[in-house]
Structures are given as structure tokens and as C-alpha cells.
Design a protein around this nucleic acid. Sequence first.
DNA 1: AGGTTGTTTGGATATATTCCAAACTATTGA
DNA 2: TCAATAGTTTGGAATATATCCAAACAACCT
Lengths: 142, 142
Amino acid sequence: MTQERPYAQTLARLRESGLRPTRQRLALGRLLFDGGDRHVTAEALHDEAQKAGVSVSLATVYNTLHQFTGAGLLREVVVDSSRTYFDTNIHDHHHFFIEKDGALMDIAGDDVLIGKLPPAPEGMDVARVDVIVRLQERKPPR
Amino acid sequence: MTQERPYAQTLARLRESGLRPTRQRLALGRLLFDGGDRHVTAEALHDEAQKAGVSVSLATVYNTLHQFTGAGLLREVVVDSSRTYFDTNIHDHHHFFIEKDGALMDIAGDDVLIGKLPPAPEGMDVARVDVIVRLQERKPPR
DNA sequence: AGGTTGTTTGGATATATTCCAAACTATTGA
DNA sequence: TCAATAGTTTGGAATATATCCAAACAACCT
């Protein structure tokens, strides 16, 4: 964690992406990138910002999440058709998903091996392969 | 295709699932199950029904898709956070997805081999593993 | 046929997200 | 340092997808 120079990391990332380092982006960037890998929804991040005393509109949270995603600082994870999750882990990896409570967990890239995959249709390239392991609570044997 | 007895197949499926064979369900079942495997959204199926001269409300299309899914006649596919797709292919298989135009294509189950997967967390069972191959148009080499 | 129960429906509602134009702020160059 | 420019933020309205609801309707059973 970058205790002193708390915004240095985010600042550098913003510069590289050609995004102006505004108060809002710096604050959101810090919430997102300080500490380990995270999965957030726009609403959740907005709440978190409020609680941290940072005033940001929900529209800006959406804008920022999309800009960060466009810049490769975040990844969008599609597991649930009712909300969009953003993942701070942008490395090769996959996910466990617990539908019951909407929880997402990373699976390290090298914990999954895809041994066979058909070729992409003519004229198409594979942009990404997502593996989603959907979990449910174990039913106790009767 | 069941040219004569056009509803026989759907009728049987509804019976097995304990769903009353209503005009709406029979019509939607026919649209869904006649012909090959399909991927539909509620809106799309609703439009299709209208065009086929079948009067069904959108609410009923949603109800029916969910009831069919609950009965194991359909599968829900989550690939796009803005709409829900239902798949008439209920066998083990995966998907290609072309974001640009929202097109989904099946990948036969045995065209994908998952060679390694971490164990589910304590107390959890794997309900399903979804593999989504996201495609994009090939960029012409310069 | 008549009663019961399951189904359908339009419209209202919920929820997530995007759009928009005005106000604001960072950057640039004189 | 300041003004001009271009990029950003904002609240509120708008959109889109999906669900809820209570009344009307239809299938089933006897």
C-alpha cells in the first residue's frame, strides 16, 4: 500500500491513459487500486465513496468505470444479467460465482487449463475466453 | 420437424413438466422447439410471436421463458449484462459470442476440454461451468 | 355444467444504466 | 499569471429490461 504519496499510483495510471487526474478519478482510483483485487458494481463503489467522504455523482462513477475499462485498468465481468461487475484484476484469470449472494471470486489463470477449443469462425478473432464456475451451496445428504 | 401434429412435441414436454398446455405456451413452445437450436431474448420471441399472428403479452413471454427454464426445457445464458438470452440447447455445451451484434453460437460440449479446474470452496458445489469465447472481427494486418 | 386452480394480461412499478446540457476544472500557450 | 480551450462532472430526465399485481380468463376435474 502506498501510505505516503497515496495517489501516485493512480496518477501514473491516469497519465498513461490520457485521462486528466481529477479529484473524482483520483479518489475512485485509490478506492479501486489500493489493496488487493476487487470486484465492484457502480452502486457499491458509489456508496463506498460516499462513506469515505468523497463526493462523486453516480453518473461519474459510471463514466469512470467505463473509462478505466477502456484504458485497460479494469475488466468488465459478465456473470449476472441484472448488474455489471468491474474487476481490478486485469490479468489472465477466471471466476467463481455464487448466484445466491452475488459473490465473485477470482480463479488464477493457471488454475484453469483449457485443453481444447474450436477455431474461431472465419474472419473472427478470439478476444477473450471467460470461464465462469457457478457455485451453489452443498445440499446436505439426507 | 413435426409437420402434422405440430404441437405434439411441445404438448408432451408441457405434460411432463406439469404445465398446462395453454394456447400461449403451445405457440411459444412451437416457435422455440421447432427447428434447430436457438438463442432468443424475451423481446425477440415476443416480436416473432406477433409476426406469426400469435397474440401473447410480453409478460407471458417472460413467464413462459422462466417456467420453461425451471422445467429444464431451456437454459439461461449470461453473456451480456443488458439482456437475457434463453437457449433451446439444454445439453452440455458452450458459446461463442459476438458482442458487436449480440450473436450467440453454440460450441458442442466435446469441442471444449477443461483440463484443470480448482476445487469448489468448502461447502459449495459446482452447479455449472460456462465457457464463453468472445469474438471480434479480425483486424486486417496493415 | 360448476367449482377450483392455474394462467394470462395490461398497466404500473422497479432497477440499472445512459443521456443531456449546463456548470465546472484542468491544461495550454501567450 | 491569465484567458481561452478542451475535457469533466453533475443532477435530473430518459431509456430499457424485467417484474409485480389484481382482475379476467381458461383448463381441469368430478
